[in-house]
């Protein structure tokens, strides 16, 4: 039974053998660090500069997402003949366009509209 399942489970492993187990351990350590450090930065306020702290926590979130996708979801170039990677990259592009585009467009819409107390467009309030 398990030999039947193996190619699907370890399609990404190839010659490395136990690569996924080691990757999982590395992922565990990195994910704990990349979660604890942003919380520490914000809760202790060590940097005093909110903008630098914000940049750092967003950068660490990006890195942590990649760590989780690679180490826990085992995404690589070979699994399912590259289709999972292609689907992931396509999704990533759409996600960036949706979130980045919405915030960008709405921010400029707000700043070019009549000034409102609080800085947000009328109907929302």
């Amino acid at each position: 039974m398990s030999t039947l399942l193996d190619p699907a489970l370890h399609a990404h492993d190839g010659p490395h053998g136990h690569g996924s187990r080691r990757g999982y351990r590395v992922g565990t350590i990195l994910s704990i660090l990349l979660t604890a450090v942003p919380f520490w930065l914000v809760m202790s306020g060590v940097l005093r500069d909110a903008q630098t702290t914000a940049l750092l926590i967003f950068a660490m979130a990006m890195v942590q997402i990649v760590v989780h996708v690679v180490c826990f979801l085992h995404l690589d170039t070979r699994s399912e003949g590259g289709w999972t990677l292609l689907a992931f990259l396509f999704t990533a592009v759409i996600v960036v366009l949706t979130i980045g585009g919405s915030i960008w467009v709405m921010y400029h819409l707000n700043t070019n509209m009549m000034p409102m107390p609080g800085g947000t467009m009328g109907p929302v309030r």
Partner: peptide, 29 residues
């Protein structure tokens, strides 16, 4: 692979929710 594609479509749902949150996150009223 099918389940992976489902997860990716679910990620798009969350992307639109994050975008909405980002747009109105200062609308404290």
């Amino acid at each position: 692979l099918g389940f992976w594609i489902y997860l990716m479509s679910d990620a798009l749902i969350f992307a639109s929710l994050f975008a909405m949150y980002g747009v109105v996150s200062t609308g404290y009223a």
